[in-house]
Amino acid sequence: MSQIPLTPFVANFIATAQPLRIGGKMLASTETLEVINPSTGNALAQVARAGKAEIDLAVAAAKDAFENGAWTRMLPNERSRILWRLADLIEERADIFGQLDALDNGKPFHVVRDVDAHWSARHFRYFAGWADKIEGATIPVGTPDRLTYTKAEPLGVCGLITPWNYPLLMAAWKLAPALAAGNSIVLKPSEETPLSALYLADLALEAGLPPGVLNVVPGYGHDAGAALAAHPDVAKIGFTGSTATGRRIVEASVGNLKKVSLEPGRQGGQYHF
């Protein structure tokens, strides 16, 4: 990465202490995370660290956006248009994502720029196409002159937890379907690779996503992740990480019987809380 000159935007982004993205605003926290460049072992950037208090703020912002904001009630074709615009912005800023993920993840710049960023854009476009095709069903019943039908509705606040290995692409995989369905999101990226997720939140606002629909809160699993998994106002958790942490998320979800989607990996404790 040292051989690739940084754009002025990226140089300024990593030199500026990055706040949380909550409710469409940039919010500081009482504690910070030090992001390390794995190719050098040196400190790269400082980002705000979310704990339970910040998770509560983010969930409250997402809940308010879901219950009182425009996203859930927006016509599906309008949601599709915004997600498509976000995909365009990801492709337009592929160089920026390439530099950010190369710096804090260590993968080659061209892999993020040419693969991760473009696949992320394609993923958002795919689910943008689903926004106006989410339908219920009619069900035959034994009672004469009666009609039974189902109506597909968004769940509410979704807590999404992503790992370090594909910072941008993992976020896109989880965000795109949840947003297309009309949910609001609290995204906790890995504490090791939070930069592209924070920038993605900025692009989402630029694309037209209403404030509070996407909130990004870097933090450790044992406090931020645990608080998100156990929060009573979170209707769904989507998690990729270790099997041990996946078990804890299932246990934490029992409080309000929230839906859980897990992609557990190795048995190690990298994402444990």
Rank of each mutant, 00 (worst) to 15 (best):
105 N>L: 10
180 A>S: 15
103 L>V: 10
162 T>K: 04
150 T>N: 00
148 T>K: 01
160 L>V: 09
139 I>Y: 10
160 L>I: 15
147 L>A: 08
128 A>K: 02
175 L>A: 07
125 R>Q: 01
157 V>I: 13
180 A>E: 09
102 A>M: 09
109 F>A: 00
107 K>W: 09
101 D>K: 00
152 A>R: 06
126 Y>K: 05
137 A>F: 01
137 A>L: 06
176 A>K: 10
154 P>G: 15
92 E>H: 11
86 L>Y: 03
172 A>Q: 05
123 H>M: 12
192 E>H: 03
149 Y>V: 10
159 G>S: 01
127 F>K: 07
121 A>S: 05
151 K>V: 14
131 A>P: 01
178 A>D: 08
129 G>I: 01
154 P>D: 15
102 A>P: 04
122 R>C: 02
94 A>I: 07
197 A>E: 06
191 E>M: 05
160 L>A: 07
114 D>G: 02
155 L>R: 14
107 K>A: 07
98 G>T: 04
91 E>C: 13
134 I>K: 02
106 G>Y: 04
148 T>E: 08
141 V>P: 00
167 P>T: 09
124 F>V: 03
110 H>Y: 10
191 E>I: 05
162 T>V: 08
87 A>P: 08
183 N>P: 11
85 R>A: 13
190 S>P: 02
112 V>G: 03
131 A>Y: 09
180 A>N: 11
86 L>P: 03
93 R>Y: 13
107 K>V: 13
116 D>C: 04
190 S>N: 03
149 Y>T: 11
161 I>G: 06
132 D>L: 04
172 A>L: 08
152 A>S: 12
148 T>D: 09
173 W>D: 03
121 A>M: 05
167 P>S: 10
115 V>A: 04
115 V>H: 08
173 W>P: 02
134 I>V: 15
165 N>K: 06
108 P>Y: 03
142 G>P: 06
128 A>T: 12
133 K>W: 01
179 L>D: 02
132 D>W: 00
146 R>I: 12
194 P>V: 13
178 A>E: 11
116 D>K: 01
109 F>S: 00
97 F>M: 13
110 H>C: 02
193 T>K: 05
193 T>Y: 07
117 A>R: 00
105 N>M: 15
